[in-house]
């Protein structure tokens, strides 16, 4: 459940955020949206795949955290278990809302990361935004511009036909099978066929680097499968010892 409130010093001067609980909204999320600015860091932890927005059919970039809806293999025993936390988690429980014509910072007042007495304060003794809140505001700004950068990257990839669908059929240690479909990745053959001129342009504009991030992130797939297998093994030993 969520309860949307716009942030306001008068009402929320005592509010604190427990950074260690920011991921609480993500425990059931198997695909976490990521923006190009964080591809580098995210690609060292998660496969970054291209999927379609179910509502619009438009391509989006997501860090893959599980194999099916409801599964996030990076939350273990209530803790965030990866070296990198995507901006979408770091920002929690805040987001940008619209108040008539202007943008305002809002938050979900039901978030488990909020507290009145524990964690990072949002305002300092001088009634100003705390360093923590300033960082959150920066992240929110990064996410807003990241949306535009994502769209630019998508149209470049679509225009040059550099995306290709892929399908994974995985069998886990408990013999259960999982098909991953509806995902797209960089088409290496198409990439290799690009004209020199185009490659140069893409290199200068940073697109080559981002595509490289997407490609190397695929090496995280075996790690993700291993994570799932470890989880299944743990469950198995739990039941067998019971």
């Amino acid at each position: 459940m969520s309860n949307i409130v716009s942030l306001n010093f008068d009402k929320h001067s005592q509010l604190r955020v427990q950074a260690s609980q920011r991921h609480s909204s993500a425990i059931n999320q198997h695909l976490m949206p990521v923006v190009p600015a964080e591809f580098g860091r995210a690609s060292s932890c998660f496969p970054i795949i291209v999927t379609k927005n179910a509502d619009t059919g438009e391509f989006t970039f997501s860090a893959m955290m599980g194999f099916q809806p409801g599964e996030n293999l990076f939350v273990r025993e209530g803790r965030w278990d990866a070296d990198y936390e995507p901006l979408q988690i770091q920002r929690q429980p805040f987001f940008v809302g619209d108040d008539q014509d202007s943008k305002v910072v809002c938050f979900d007042s039901d978030s488990l990361a909020l507290s009145d007495d524990d964690g990072e304060p949002l305002f300092n003794a001088q009634s100003q935004a705390s360093d923590y809140l300033l960082t959150v505001q920066q992240i929110l700004t990064q996410l807003l511009s990241g949306e535009i950068e994502s769209q630019k990257l998508v149209s470049e990839l679509v225009e040059l036909k550099l995306l290709t669908p892929f399908r994974l059929d995985i069998e886990f240690t408990d013999r259960s099978k999982q098909a991953v479909q509806g995902a797209y990745m960089i088409d290496e053959n198409k990439l290799a066929e690009l004209d020199d001129q185009v490659v140069l342009r893409l290199y200068r504009s940073g697109v080559i680097g981002l595509m490289h991030n997407l490609q190397t992130s695929m090496h995280q797939l075996p790690n993700l499968i291993a994570r799932k297998n470890r989880m299944l093994d743990t469950a198995k030993s739990w039941f067998e010892s019971a």
Partner: peptide
């Protein structure tokens, strides 16, 4: 309506 708003992807 969605096709007019967002279009479909080729792949």
């Amino acid at each position: 309506n969605k096709i007019h708003d967002y279009g479909m992807q080729a792949i």
